[in-house]
């Protein structure tokens, strides 16, 4: 299975452009270890067994939640952030799923907060990691293969 960074970048740019009207571009950046972050993840099971995650700095998460709900960043609640990151992960994950072998099923999103890198799949292998700058805030899309036999 081959996932191209360009395909993933196109998906992310479409989601950000049409749902948030927030600028985003691929960027060659490193995870800033220990930074407060929010990560959303969706699982894909079936012909492929993957976890797709979207991890963004806490300030970036607040910025996109404010854009999603049309609020000032100071008025954004933790629920607004969880809802926004969950739905963005769902959209990006659903579109990436269409590039993976079918048939497969997409799980509901799970959102966690912590310090970056917030999410690592134990025993999984990374199929793709692409960095972005979302209105200047670091964000990463990761696709993990969870299948031990492939």
């Amino acid at each position: 299975m081959h996932l191209s960074s360009d395909d993933v970048a196109q998906i992310v740019e479409e989601v950000w452009g049409s749902m948030l009207a927030v600028d985003i571009a691929p960027a060659d950046i490193e995870v800033d270890k220990g930074d407060p972050s929010v990560a959303g993840s969706v699982g894909v099971t079936g012909a492929t067994d993957c976890l797709i995650s979207l991890e963004i700095s806490e300030s970036g998460a607040r910025n996109v939640a404010a854009a999603m709900f049309g609020l000032d960043e100071a008025d954004v609640s933790d629920d607004d952030i969880a809802d926004t990151i969950g739905e963005l992960t769902n959209m990006v994950g659903g579109n990436i799923k269409s590039l993976l072998p079918e048939p497969s099923t997409l799980s509901l999103p799970v959102v966690a907060s912590g310090r970056g890198p917030t999410l690592r799949v134990v025993g999984g292998t990374s199929l793709l990691q692409q960095g972005f700058l979302s209105a200047g805030h670091p964000m990463f899309v990761n696709v993990w293969n969870r299948a031990s036999t492939s």
């Binding site: 769902n90 959209m91 994950g93 659903g94 579109n95 799923k97 269409s98 079918e102 048939p103 997409l106």
Partner: peptide, 8 residues
């Protein structure tokens, strides 16, 4: 109105 639109 959904995040995936496979043929199936």
């Amino acid at each position: 109105v959904t995040s995936e639109g496979s043929d199936a």
